[in-house]
Write a protein that binds this DNA or RNA. Sequence first.
RNA 1: AGGCGCGUAGCUCAGUGGUAGAGCGCUACCCCGACACGGUAGAAGUCACCAGUUCAAGUCUGGUCGCGCCUACCA
Length: 894
Amino acid sequence: MTDSSLKKGYEPGEVEKRCYRLWESENLFSAEESSEKKPYSIVIPPPNVTGVLHMGHALNITLQDVLCRYQRLLGKNVLWVPGTDHAGIATQNVVERDLAAKGLDRYGMGREQFIDAIWQWKEKYGRTIIDQLKRMGASCDWDRERFTMDDGLSRAVRKVFVALYEEGLIYRGSYIINWCVRCRTALADIEVEHEEHDGHLYHIRYPWPNGGGGPVVATTRPETMLGDTAVAVHPDDERYGNLEDERVILPLTGREIPVIRDDYVDMAFGTGALKITPAHDPNDFVVGERHNLPSRKVIGDDGIMTEEAGGFAGLDRFECRKRIVAALEKEGLLVKIEDHAHGIGHCYRCQTVVEPNLSPQWFVATRPLAEKAIAAVRKNKTRIIPEKWKNDYFVWLENVRDWCISRQIWWGHQIPAWTCADCQEIIVSETDPDACTGCGSQNLIRDEDVLDTWFSSALWPFSTMGWPDKTRLLDTFYPTSVLVTAFDILFFWVARMMMMGIHFMKDVPFHHVYIHALVRDEDGRKMSKSTGNVIDPISVIENYGTDALRFTLAAFAAQGRDIKLSEKRIEGYRHFINKIWNSARFALMHIDADAAERGAGHIAGGSLPDRWILSRLRHTADTVAGALDDYRFNEAAGSLYQFVWHELCDWYLEAAKPALYGNDDAETGRKAAATLWRVLRDTLILLHPFVPFVSEEIWQKMPGTTDSIMKARFPGRDPELPAPEREPAAEAAMEQVMGIITAVRNIRGEMNISPSVSLSAMVLAENPETRDMVDRQAQLVRYLARLENLEIKDGGDSPKAAATAIVQDVSVSVLLEGVIDVAREAERLDKEIAKLDKEITTLVRKLENESFVSKAPEDVVEKVRMQYTESSEKREKLENNRKTIQSIAASGGA
RNA sequence: AGGCGCGUAGCUCAGUGGUAGAGCGCUACCCCGACACGGUAGAAGUCACCAGUUCAAGUCUGGUCGCGCCUACCA
């Protein structure tokens, strides 16, 4: 039976399209709302709706898809909720940039028109990321796709906001926050990226009112001095002993400001005198509150100096710094400038230097929520894997400050809060209010701000399932089974989902959190557009196929280490996909309906290779399942690679060829075909979570399979569906046979004998069981070792003109009469003996060590003894051969 | 400044205290009826360094050096 429809090389392009269409048309991704089957659920970390797929997504999606497909093969009712995030600042930035190119800006357009423009943008580009996820093979339940700004989720956001407000967990207040002057919005603390910069420490003298002396303060940001409202020193600082109620002159302004005492000041730093700018420094703000100092905002929301800056008004903040320094120098008040490295905050969306800024904002009181989120992980209600991230999670939550959730942008969930223009009452409501609850006025002004994008993402695990309605989906699938994500959003997202999930659902949002690696370039740098080192997953898919990319990512997804990716590696795994393809092509030539029928049942009485490969198959199935249960993706991928390439292809297919080509009797051939069918079928199932396309394509071409491979069951995991068992005896026997074959091949190689030269060999096996076993496998050994003759004896001397190797308890001699190169064989044996000597030395050292023999566990000692015996015997045999060879050499060669 | 992690074959990385592994690369030979995106064989490592614990350490402990990352309000 020949199926010649498989092409010589695997061509992923059209296969991927065809398979994905099949899965979608058969609805194989959709979960049942309720079912007899056990539930398994994942919510996707929603990518930016207008974004494009990068390698981080590719890894993230691959791992989730591996898990989902694996769980379906286990017979679970799998829900993988897909969706996208509106990504407030990021999306707004992109659209603003686009509009700027047309000479437009949002202020000129007005809010309504601008939001309209973003929706249009979203409609235009919003499908890209979803299409790309599909190209990755993602088996999401697309009918349940959600968007953080769709009606349902918006309703959830409002409900949560109002509930937290009423509980007193959301409040509004004027505090110093991180301000991005480019995005013109507040940022949460974690949205600021700190970067070490080489800056300067400017020492500035603040003279006494009488014009002389005065304390010297040190600052890295001289431009903020215009907003200073005090100078602070430590209460214990004796250098400033008599400064009580003193005042100093703020240079360049002539303003008098007080000297205060506060133990926040570090006496050891700089001069021990600290300028206080409550409006532009978070610490100074706190000090200012303590001492009732006024705030003077000298840097505007646009990064330009305000009217408060006097003569410096209208200057850019960095230009202002230069002018200030020059002016101070001119007045002789600049004492010195030191080099000083310090961290500077940047906006995580646009990299602009963040300005600490005083402004009214909305906050979530995080503490009470955080405590429960901490407890849930401590009590293992949610397990974080790998465990090392637990600590970061705890430390962050334990030290978390209130979360600034208002953003001065327009794209997002507008805060459901209104202020009465008449009585200043604040109204927070799920539905838009008609009148003031205080005075009845209809003159209500809605808060302009929108909520932090992460506020809506925090609700994702339950808002996507229909909350606040009580839905069957929630009943069935909440809490979700696992969240798969990278550590960089552990705080942004995971911690906040934990807080919101526990608070509103009274249960954790997920049982497991699996934190995977970050994908970097081959030099270990983070991939970014500005460095130009990004590898675009879609172009990789076009060049190498989705399966190759997926397998590469899975194979490199070792826990606790970043992935350095290069195309070279992907190419390597493309070869593996091709190997799978070709092994199937070969198999399909030899299997038919009969093989399928026999292969589906219990296969008994097969050849040694038949029994061996079935046993190895079972071993592989168990390894893969065990690894996936523990999120050890690389181990699962590695064992599949090893099995398919080095056991199935290298040994089984080669060993089975004589039978499959009909060189043996018909029954042996049929059994081999049945075995081959079974191994191919089960291997495809094991591979499927990793390489869904090639496995499906081959499945479709196989006789005896129905439907999609997605409906198959994972071998060995369902008691109802028997799988081949491990057979240690068959594995041991086959290992020895393979050893003998390898030994002959090795001699051929070392002796430089061409593969075309036919050889004769002799196996000496004193152990009768081994002897019989080798005897039964003689044909196999002859075939794979390319031997003309193979003699098997249970005693006697090794032949003289021969090259000999020892394999466990047998010796293998390749007869070299006529072809022997005495010197070469002597050299080869010397090398072998030297290797054994080294081994024996270490073993002897152990056995002669009394404390080892007495203290080490019995089985370890026994093992060493056995190794010693084995190695010594092996050495002795080789030594004898060495002597024989020497005598031949002495008598003038063979 | 603290915290975490890493340093194993030329490269990228696995490695549960018991004689060091893989992939790629490299060397030699080979188009043998699935595959040259292939086959067979081979070379290649004082497991960063120094101490310690242990019968035994790549693996555990402490320290040193180098490299990352995260957190932090010392101006």
